[in-house]
Design a binder for these strands. Structure first.
Lengths: 186, 186
DNA sequence: TGCCGCATGTAATTAGTTACATGATTTC
DNA sequence: GAAATCATGTAACTAATTACATGCGGCA
């Protein structure tokens, strides 16, 4: 499961389940998400398999924290995953499925509206990614060229987000243009 | 569940579970996939909810076929889905997670290799999509302009595939270029 | 004889979501 | 006093994958 490897990757630094959830929210959200209700059991599974350990520490501002660390075996497992083939799953693009059947509405206006909505959603994503980029600008030494590896590779994933979302926006615009053209020529 | 709506959409024409599986393989694979072991129970569920019906017909070249049809209620349900907001799920991009942690390998060559592999995989996808495009060229009246709606909207989803995969290839090339540049400047 | 395509499924498991449950401290 | 943040989970459910199970007809 990729989530297991992602947690192993994030546990380069010791962290609690709660901390890890924040990493998803602030640093990985453009390509992955995970809920606490999935993170906690996964950490237990990793510990059972000897890939992480934890110690319980008291906190001044809340309940006790279970701070997890990656073991040598955990690091090995991570490196194996990184040495293997790129993992590509079948995609499931819900809105594309909607578009596929839009002819059943027999109404180009519905379709145009659909694409305009979609475009707005993608623009919101671009905005969220720009926030993440701002974090890089503020905290990555020698941004954007000559960043240290620990910033550079995560930054590449952000670049992916921009490329792909921009392509989606282009597709929306192209589709709207085609739909408008079809309205005239019938 | 989107799969339920997709089956309702495909059942514009009567079909068996087996037929529907072939639709995924030949027409929808660029944005969705479903296995027979998921299609059969989903058809049963749809029938239980009155959205499809079936009749059993004998076949000259194999076992009896359960031919499913969409009911009026099924069509209504589909139209509801198409009238709603575009459905956007959180993405889970496995290979991006791998890239995010590539710094742990401490080896730019591994990273370059990774991106070259990835690029090849995307190019294979482009090739599969071109096969689908060929089907449009052969069977869609007045391709590519003035296609009837039943061809036009599915064709838009194929256009999405091209836009997004091309963006991914661009990202791979940009990343390889950056990695090569970093190799020189240290 | 053995493999491919047609055609049906069920069972077991994995991955992820949503809902439920608890309780401390800090900020407005 | 209420809401937000910190911090832990479990239970029930949904969605999807993988493995298992059966059997006909045609072709090489």
């Amino acid at each position: 499961m990729s989530l297991e490897y992602i947690l192993l990757g994030l546990l380069d630094e010791p962290a609690t389940g709660y901390d890890l959830k924040k990493s998803f929210k602030f640093h990985l959200s453009h390509f992955w998400n995970a809920n606490l209700s999935q993170i906690y059991p996964t950490l237990k599974k990793l510990e059972k398999n000897g890939l992480v350990t934890h110690e319980e520490l008291s906190s001044p501002i809340g309940p006790d924290r279970k701070v997890y660390k990656r073991t040598a075996e955990g690091k090995e497992k991570l490196l194996e995953w990184l040495s293997g083939e790129p993992v590509m799953a079948d995609s499931r693009v819900h809105f594309a499925a909607q578009v596929f059947f839009l002819s059943e509405k027999h109404d180009p206006e519905t379709a145009i509206k659909f694409f305009k909505n979609l475009k707005i959603m993608f623009e919101e994503r671009i905005a969220r990614m720009s926030e993440i980029e701002k974090l890089f600008e503020e905290s990555a030494p020698e941004f954007p060229d000559n960043m240290p590896d620990e910033y550079f590779y995560p930054y590449l994933t952000l670049r992916m987000g921009f490329h792909r979302i921009q392509a989606s926006i282009d597709w929306c615009e192209e589709s709207i243009k085609n739909l408008e053209k079809r309205k005239l020529s019938d």
